[in-house]
Design a protein around this nucleic acid. Structure first.
Length: 422
RNA sequence: CGGAGCGUGGUGUAACGGCUAACAUUUCUGUUUUGGGAACAGAAGACUCCGGGUUCGAAUCCCGGCGCUCCGACCA
């Protein structure tokens, strides 16, 4: 990733007002700051700043997935309908979010909404023996879902990036052990991207093979889900499964639960042998018998995570990125003095250029506002874009041999000696 | 997919069925200015979403389409 950028070269611009048909805070701020561009309802392009943040989120997820033994691959978006027919999910009645298309010769294809079928089928080429298990594969892939109603800015899109990991295990114990590791990895991800405090492991319906699945729900008014939070245990229950049995299982009482709105930023799911049965993914066990592989799926939408961060980490002036996902670590602003006459060096620009060069040399990701714009405009843009640390170089500061450092989140200002920049 | 609302320069808004579609912002030129989206002067930018209809006359009224937003349903 490119570490440095002069703002005069950045082709995107900020805007004072959000388009009137964007109501959600995440889309309003991200569009105004030049992170995303709306193409259609539920379909957004990612611009340079937005892509940088997206890649930061992706990078964190990748590290956590690698840490639990995930192996990254990339499956195709165009998918063969026959493997979907085997699981019974080709039908529009079963899966109503399909985008389907055809080849010139009439062959029907589907644009992947998810990849259980395809990966299960693929794994048949590689999983033969208990010695081949466990296996953990994941990808970052664009999913296509024909949502009847896209909404909430980038929170529910028709085309969106998703990290999906699938686990293949030889028995229930092996599966469960990995499932727990994955759960912890997810906790790590949300913590690292800056929304850990507001994110709850939420018990949700489990389907055929386990009593519960686990959603990761982040509290925000922009959310679509209603969950019941148990503050003491830092867990929650999805409204859909809240009943006496669940309360008993979790050892909690209804009185301790608080109803909150939340957005689902990830979920993990025990698939059991649903897909390995359907697509005949079996392995030869130690005793010589064929057994179906036990599977799990684990999903996170980096775009939705980004939208969630934008909802939570922002104020009336704009975005406030956590350091770990900010498009740049530092925003350097030069309030240069244009009065500088020909032949007389512009001291402010000179100092700012030097500081910029030092940051670049140190490998700090920096956006340098070298534009010919007024102070107010630069400050407003800086607040809107939301880079965590802002440095200002001006006549006033260099008169004392200093540079001003301001924390976007706390607003705390500190003067730093120019000679301290190494 | 049911319900509601809305489509006017790049963006945000205005305009009784009646003048050359107005204002702000934006962009460009020049002067001036540099610590919170400065000031002045000049300029650019619109078949008022599309297609029909009513009318002497439509941004405005009617019909159809498309698009967008919100509520609900849905969310492997």
């Amino acid at each position: 990733m490119i570490r440095l950028m002069k703002q005069s070269h950045l082709f995107t611009k900020t805007r004072r007002e959000a388009p009137k048909d964007e109501v959600s805070k995440n889309a309003q701020l991200l569009i105004r700051a030049g992170f995303i561009h709306k193409e259609m309802a539920g379909i957004y392009s990612f611009l340079p700043l937005g892509l940088r943040t997206m890649n930061k989120i992706v990078g964190i997820i990748r590290e956590e997935m690698n840490a639990i033994g995930g192996q990254e691959l990339s499956l195709t978006a165009l998918q063969d309908k026959h493997i979907w027919e085997k699981s019974g999910r080709w039908s529009d009645e079963v899966l109503d979010v399909w985008f389907k298309t055809t080849l010139k010769n009439g062959t029907e294809l589907g644009l992947g909404t998810t990849h259980e079928e395809q990966l299960t089928n693929l794994m048949k080429d590689y999983i033969r023996s208990y010695r081949d298990l466990p296996a953990y594969a994941y990808q970052f892939q664009t999913k296509f879902r024909n949502e009847t109603r896209a909404k909430s800015g980038i929170m529910r899109c028709r085309e969106f990036l998703m990290k999906d990991l699938y686990s293949f295990s030889k028995n229930e114990a092996e599966h469960s052990a990995f499932y727990e590791k994955a759960k912890q990895a997810y906790v790590n991800v949300y913590k690292r991207v800056g929304i850990g405090d507001l994110t709850y492991i939420t018990f949700s319906s489990g389907g055929t093979f386990s009593k519960y699945s686990h959603e990761f729900q982040t509290l925000t008014e922009a959310g679509e889900d209603m969950i019941y939070v148990h503050e003491g245990k830092k867990i929650a229950v999805n409204k859909e499964v809240l009943n006496d049995e669940v309360l008993k299982d979790l050892g909690i009482s209804r009185a301790d639960l608080i109803e909150k709105k939340a957005v689902e930023v990830g979920n993990i799911f025990n698939l059991g042998t649903k897909f390995s049965d359907a697509l005949e993914l079996v392995f030869k066990d130690v005793d010589g018998t064929n057994k179906p592989v036990i599977m799990g799926s684990y999903g996170i939408g980096p775009g939705r995570v980004m939208g969630t961060i934008a909802e939570i980490c922002s104020d009336d002036k704009g975005l406030i990125w956590p350091e770990s996902v900010a498009p740049f670590a530092v925003h350097l602003i030069a309030l240069s003095n244009k009065k500088a006459v020909e032949g007389v060096e512009d001291q402010v620009k000179k100092v700012a250029d030097e500081i910029y060069a030092k940051f670049v040399k140190r490998g700090v990701e920096i956006l340098y506002d070298d534009r010919d714009a007024t102070a107010g405009e630069k400050f407003s843009d800086s607040d809107l874009i939301g880079i965590p640390i802002r440095y200002v170089v001006s006549e006033k500061t260099i008169a004392n041999g200093e540079v001003e450092m301001k924390d976007r989140k706390t607003g705390k200002v500190e003067m730093v000696n120019i000679s301290d920049f190494k």
